[in-house]
């Protein structure tokens, strides 16, 4: 079992399981009136690799008697491999990072789908948090962990022929051109 501390919230997560069998989990220790769930889009790849895109659907329900105003919902990506535990900078993973919901009426639901581009290999878990100005301690939901398989992004078998072949070819062309241009320079007038 991996224990991750994030913003003072203790999350419990089991080991990674296949994505298709992932079940939604909710974590709602403080704000009973707001509930959040996050689940991977079942149409996504079951064994994702670097470069694939994974969509995650989240849903926030307002169970309270009054409307939730100024609600912020945000995405967090955690890397959970042993020795690499960290919150991942979403900068290059997703253009969807957070959303502000002005008003969510009582017993209403808001749903969204956010997409992640899988940039690096490793095991990850997606968290979706929700908080309001009145209830600053967030409610957080976590997806099941999923593993992104590595992919070799720079193959020397491609780079070497290009990086060596092109300058070589241009060098040959240049030498040919110089020899052709200089041969016979200084030809005398032939009146």
């Amino acid at each position: 079992m991996i224990r991750i501390v994030l913003h003072g919230i203790v999350l419990a997560a089991s080991a990674a399981v296949p994505l298709a069998s992932a079940a939604p989990r909710a974590c709602d220790p403080t704000a009973a009136q707001l509930a959040v769930t996050v689940t991977p889009d079942p149409r996504g790849p079951t064994a994702p690799r670097m470069g694939d895109r994974l969509a995650f659907r989240w849903m926030v329900v307002n169970h309270g008697a009054s409307a939730a105003t100024g609600m912020i919902v945000w995405l967090t990506l955690l890397r959970v491999d042993t020795g690499h535990e960290q919150a991942v900078d979403l900068e290059d993973w997703s253009t969807d990072k957070a959303v502000l919901v002005d008003n969510l009426a009582s017993n209403n639901i808001i749903r969204r789908t956010w997409t992640l581009r899988l940039i690096s290999s490793g095991t990850y878990r997606v968290l979706v948090g929700v908080a309001t100005p009145d209830v600053p301690v967030p409610t957080v939901a976590a997806s099941e962990a999923f593993t992104v398989a590595p992919k070799l992004v720079v193959e020397s078998i491609r780079v070497l022929p290009v990086a060596l072949g092109i300058p070589f070819t241009l060098g040959i062309l240049l030498a040919f051109r110089l020899v052709r241009g200089h041969a016979g320079t200084g030809t005398e007038d032939a009146d």
């Binding site: 200089h182 320079t185 030809t187």
Partner: peptide, 18 residues
């Protein structure tokens, strides 16, 4: 101009007079 023998000569190979 007296260059009729050299139409295909590169100008780089021409003498100053040519």
């Amino acid at each position: 101009v007296g260059l009729d023998a050299s139409p295909d000569l590169l100008t780089a190979r021409c003498s100053q007079g040519m």
